[in-house]
Design a binder for these strands. Sequence first.
DNA 1: TATATTGCTTTCGTTTTGAAAGTTATTTTT
DNA 2: AAAAATAACTTTCAAAACGAAAGCAATATA
Lengths: 134, 134
Amino acid sequence: MVEKIFRSQCPISSGLDLFGDKWSLLIVRDLLYHSERTFKDFSQSSENISSARLADRLSKLEKSGFLTKSKHPTNKKVFLYHLTQKGRDLAPILAEFVCWSNKYLNDHISEESKLFAEQLKDNREQVLSKYQNP
Amino acid sequence: MVEKIFRSQCPISSGLDLFGDKWSLLIVRDLLYHSERTFKDFSQSSENISSARLADRLSKLEKSGFLTKSKHPTNKKVFLYHLTQKGRDLAPILAEFVCWSNKYLNDHISEESKLFAEQLKDNREQVLSKYQNP
DNA sequence: TATATTGCTTTCGTTTTGAAAGTTATTTTT
DNA sequence: AAAAATAACTTTCAAAACGAAAGCAATATA
């Protein structure tokens, strides 16, 4: 009845068990950058996630405590997603993805992300601190 | 004929396209920790990867330049896997996994990894520098 | 020489995925 | 007020990825 979540006691393996797929960290990325997103917003990100997959990932990330879902103040059919602290604390992982890709995929990534990688290189702590608080 | 590798120009999405699955980073982890591994060594890691999946991941990681495969000096049936610089440079990503899991999965991860997380917290640069060179 | 081991590959049933279409409640337009 | 559009999903279905197990060839060990 109780399904096993973790393959081992390794922190890397356990992290992968929670958010190690092709989509979860992209949802987190969008929320770090925009702080508030709707289902439609996520759908329109450039990686073209299918709505089935998006719905599934949002509910898993909510269940695992990475994000919260709340009602829009005026529009009844829209829901708003926000990161929790647990989700915001994934920012340093994403930052290292950015740095790695800036070094090894430099001719492929966008100019905007190269600039961001430079900022991280020069001033990691300060850049990241902006994402640590709500 | 040419298959698309990357979903977008985002450095995070592109990193996930290359090594964003449940196994690749665990192979890298083993090689960061042990510097040299055989097929059997990887098979015996505590997450129990199947041999089909392991063979597939090793060949993909080799093809993408994260690791190299070479002959054992004396034993003809054994092959040795090593990280390239490109692979070693994933260490900071793994380090952030360790820090995140130490904070949010502390009651689940091993004591050994908690110690490692503490070392990273106190002395990130020096701890990581050990993994940056061959 | 017989047995065991290594590094895979193959097979196969199950799970996960992506693409597309469908649904419901609400909001906007006419 | 009725019709059309929209948001947030859900459903369907075929394809891809996966895990477990067995099989295999070359080499090493007993």
